[in-house]
Design a protein around this nucleic acid. Structure first.
Lengths: 145, 145
DNA sequence: TCCATTACTTATCATTTGATAATAAAATAA
DNA sequence: TTATTTTATTATCAAATGATAAGTAATGGA
């Protein structure tokens, strides 16, 4: 296996992943929410509770800008902040009930499209996909070293 | 294989892919170029010659905005437009020599980081990765139906 | 020929996002 | 105690991106 060739395959693959991700998420429409705000909500949904600093790091945005977007999300009652009892500088960000509802709908919408994507897959296909995801996760995308 | 479970794995996987893609490309620094402009150049690099309409479709941006960014890229001598001799409404966009050089450097930079990522992979690991990419491409990300 | 359509451009405006400075409050180290 | 660091916020400005209207030129069909 030539590494150069593998790189080319990798580039084509990641492009396809981005493309499909876009297709799966494009019909998720939360009223008056910006892409960045959606990404933040998505991150909170799967990782809550999280601190503004963690959001800042993972979403690759500055803390002031993170703070601004969180304020907007809080004003719209999608999230709430709870200050740490130990270290009162820290704030834990969580989804509110409204926020949970909205994100569950969003994920349901994405899941529906995902199921369409794999609707023709056989039982063995599903096993193969599962296995392939594991391999790539382990050996490329989540190196646990 | 439960499809619901596979969906969760899929979501985690695509998140990891986006994360790694970001890490691989983050130290590609082309002077005074915006993210959108970079994405356009990247697309042209792998697909040239392309028309503005194709760029517009693939990059999910309106034709007027595409036209504006292409103008900027043309002013900076990264790309050139050639009109179709058959249908003179159509324009083919290509990289100039400068553009080619810049993008080759960018890809070299990404490849270098990719090689670091898989530096500890054995010969068998590389085969496994190659195979896994093929499976996912075929069964999920590039459904040829 | 005339009309509709396609491919693209220009211009303009609103919104989103990014960058930075200044501040505050709590924690921690000296 | 005082100084430093960490966490987060507010405020402000610049730049990038998105949306839309209007216009040009070429094509193709009626």
């Amino acid at each position: 296996m030539d590494k150069k060739e593998l790189f080319n395959q990798f580039v084509a693959f990641t492009t396809a992943v981005h493309q499909v991700t876009h297709e799966l998420t494009q019909n998720v429409k939360i009223d008056n929410i910006t892409p960045v705000q959606y990404k933040i909500l998505e991150y909170i949904k799967v990782s809550q509770p999280v601190t503004p600093t963690e959001i800042s790091d993972c979403q690759h945005m500055s803390l002031p800008n993170t703070s601004r977007e969180l304020r907007k999300l809080q004003e719209r009652k999608f999230i709430e902040k709870i200050s740490d009892t130990e270290d009162r500088r820290k704030h834990y960000v969580c989804l509110t009930e409204d926020g949970e509802k909205v994100m569950e709908e969003a994920f349901a919408c994405i899941e529906e499209r995902f199921l369409q994507l794999i609707q023709h897959a056989s039982k063995k296909d599903l096993e193969d996909i599962h296995h392939a995801l594991n391999i790539l996760d382990e050996k490329v995308f989540n190196p646990k070293s």
